[in-house]
Design a protein around this nucleic acid. Structure first.
Lengths: 200, 200
DNA sequence: CCGCAAAGTGGAACGTGTTCCTATTTTAGC
DNA sequence: GCTAAAATAGGAACACGTTCCACTTTGCGG
């Protein structure tokens, strides 16, 4: 189970190792941001991160692991940023829509990067389940936090609704990434779904 | 726009060409069914379809196009089968759930094939937009037909709801394909979403 | 400080998707 | 039926993800 996973930050003992990991993810983001999924080439990442190819594979066992881990780091940063700026909006639906639109806008401001991360996420197979699960939990918790003001209890139903919304958001993102929908339509799609799901 | 698309059946003049196309898609399905996405290797498909590699690429410009076109053909067959057997169920939600569960069961009976087709669908980039769009339309129309008995007018709102349901179904399928959820959970996920979305 | 196990380096090598090129076969128009 | 164009065959070649190996460096327990 754990043999094929990416090395998480907590697993890394020395500062040099944490730094290597950071350099690798930075290089990944930079290349993705510039040329999308195809531009994230393992040799290029290794070179840019000043790391041997074998080392890169020691930290991240595949290109997909690498990109999903990069997504995870970005998402964690987004979540921290959200914690600082509590969500505005009077109703549950409004707050959720605001969170999603803010996040979506952020991603749309760097289309190539979003394309790379989204496609990696969707292409991931069972070996990336652990990393994918992490991202899914982050997304769900971002949404449930938006649904309720501080301290409110979150029921199992709420989690299910959040998951459904997360699913729709992902599908909308995929549609946008693949050029089937534009930014406006993506926003509408999310709004429709949230309003339908949170109309109480 | 059209330069990079797969050759559709309508584009093919001669019977020999239609037959080649069919052989290629048959080979694709067979290989996918047996070994999943990775087993669908272009050389293997070409050999099994008794076609040169160059010819394969002339019919389908990439592995993704090939698999998405195979998905499209399978989906069209599913839709035809559904037309014959009208959906049972008293409420809108029941009918939609039945259609989706029936389709999902069909896919789960051939996990490798489903894995191959689903991953191709999710990995597709902008160059496959046309084929993807076709599949999306098929799915939406399957759902709207399930929502209403014959002849009822379908509003824009209905289409939007159908799209949201389709999104959730796809995400659920991806979760199942990647081993994050099992068959039961997948069914529940769909049921939850449909009940939330069609509760009027 | 030594010695050794773990981690990292540099690069060759392999598999599979994709491209390309040259013959050969099929098709269509006359 | 003949010929030019299009389609197909057969296969070499290339790109990039991935694996592997021999060597060097790092870090740590004694």
């Amino acid at each position: 189970m754990s043999s094929a996973n990416s090395l998480a930050v907590e697993d890394l003992g020395s500062a040099a190792q944490r730094d290597r990991r950071k350099r690798i993810l930075d290089a990944t983001i930079a290349l993705a941001s510039q040329g999308g999924f195809d531009a994230v080439q393992m040799r290029a990442v290794a070179e840019r991160a000043d790391v041997a190819l074998g080392t890169l594979y020691r930290y991240f066992p595949s290109k997909i692991h690498l990109l999903v881990s990069a997504l995870q780091r970005e998402f964690e940063r987004t979540e921290v940023a959200l914690r600082d700026k509590p969500v505005e909006g009077d109703t549950t639906a409004d707050r959720v829509i605001n969170v999603l639109k803010r996040t979506t806008r952020g991603m749309q401001s760097d289309p190539k990067l979003t394309e790379a991360l989204t496609r990696a996420f969707m292409f991931a197979d069972a070996s990336v389940a652990a990393e994918i699960h992490q991202v899914g939990m982050l997304l769900t918790s971002m949404l449930t936090r938006a649904m309720y003001p501080e301290g409110h209890e979150v029921t199992e139903d709420d989690v299910q609704i959040a998951r459904v919304i997360g699913d729709v958001w992902l599908s909308a993102l995929v549609g946008w990434v693949t050029g089937r929908t534009n930014a406006v339509e993506t926003g509408q799609q999310i709004e429709v779904a949230v309003k339908l799901l949170l109309r109480d």
